[in-house]
Design a protein around this nucleic acid. Structure first.
Lengths: 119, 119
DNA sequence: TGACTATATTCATTTTTAATCATATGATAT
DNA sequence: ATATCATATGATTAAAAATGAATATAGTCA
């Protein structure tokens, strides 16, 4: 069933990190790769799984593929909205991911590894 | 992390059926077994997984073990409440399970298989 | 006590999922 | 055209999860 597929897709730490980041802004694969410090193929596969479950969508822009949260699913499965807005935000792990994204943006990187500025 | 364990536990059709039934009333293993028409060991294991994730609790009453939804988790992870109240109830599959529970109660069975009354 | 019932657990097996490496595709820039 | 970059995918391996059958444990009842 669709619902179990959605739940299965959300039942993984890396994928929760991804949707949490996408809550902030749309990102391309290499950016997610850099922020989560995971391999390209691994991130790509996790993204594919989330997309297959209908949780995110992808959009090609020149050589990059940007991913974003599929807002339709938030109305179809309202628990996801609750999960993102009330649950995920509480967890240090996911707050940290957002902080890494902020650092990444601050340093104006484009698809490179995050430098530890010793914050 | 705890959150992924909860989501993993919910990412299975049988286990969603179980929590959906327990939303209606507390049940023992053999009742769930009869209603979902699944094997004893299988149901027992699914229940264990849900309990390990903190979603349900168990309570021994003489030779039976009754399971119920752990209300604490509904405040800790508010998305579960949304999932149960707004999401699960919409799906025919889970409505059907509740109907089977009703039939089971109507026939006043105790831990036996459901008879198809041709409803 | 012995037979029986409800549940949990162990073992063996199968299925599913995750991760990694290597390669393919398609776009861009020179 | 060639080199390069971003992404996806195939193949493989490793790890985790699901299932069935059999067994163990504990409670009940006669």
């Amino acid at each position: 069933m669709n619902l179990t597929r959605v739940l299965k897709a959300l039942g993984d730490g890396t994928r929760l990190s991804i949707v949490n980041l996408l809550r902030v802004e749309n990102l391309c694969v290499c950016e997610i790769e850099a922020i989560l410090q995971s391999s390209q193929s691994n991130v790509s596969r996790h993204l594919a799984k989330l997309r297959d479950a209908g949780i995110i969508y992808s959009e090609k822009r020149s050589q990059w593929v940007y991913y974003g949260i599929n807002t339709d699913i938030l109305t179809e499965h309202s628990f996801i909205k609750t999960l993102l807005d009330e649950d995920l935000v509480k967890h240090p792990q996911y707050q940290q991911d957002v902080e890494k994204l902020r650092m990444y943006r601050e340093q104006n990187y484009e698809c490179g590894p995050i430098e530890n500025t010793g914050a």
